[in-house]
């Protein structure tokens, strides 16, 4: 079993209240315990199955992808989409979901 952290920078504080910590208005985070071999995609799917706000705003269960306009970061590293979803989670890993960057 591995402990991993999922962090959302999506201003979902109120909608995930009670299930996720909310260190600031923007951030919601939660520790999950996952089995050996669990991928980032598995983790996101499992969260979407359990939390309505994640299913609605973060992970499209049918398409098995992040919803449009979001980007994922695996253990403080930005990667291409395919690599991101396939990553096998290790103890201490962190997955962060952000809106696709814009600006200027």
């Amino acid at each position: 079993m591995n402990r991993v952290t999922i962090e959302l920078w999506l201003w979902l504080g109120r909608r995930l209240e009670g299930d996720f910590e909310s260190p600031s208005a923007m951030r919601s985070l939660r520790e999950e315990v996952v089995e050996e071999g669990t991928t980032v995609r598995d983790l996101l799917g499992s969260l979407a199955n359990r939390f309505k706000a994640i299913e609605q705003e973060v992970f499209d269960i049918q398409g098995q992808r992040l919803r449009e306009g979001l980007v994922g970061i695996y253990s403080e590293r930005v990667t291409g989409d395919d690599e991101f979803y396939r990553k096998i989670l290790r103890d201490g890993d962190k997955v962060v979901i952000l809106p696709v960057y814009t600006g200027g």
């Binding site: 920078w9 923007m26 696709v100 814009t102 600006g103």
Partner: peptide, 23 residues
Amino acid sequence: KVSGPIYQWGSGGGFSAVYGIGA
């Protein structure tokens, strides 16, 4: 309206996301 945070938060609405990806 739904293409990014511009409508609701202005162009600064993407600031933290830009930070999050190291940009």
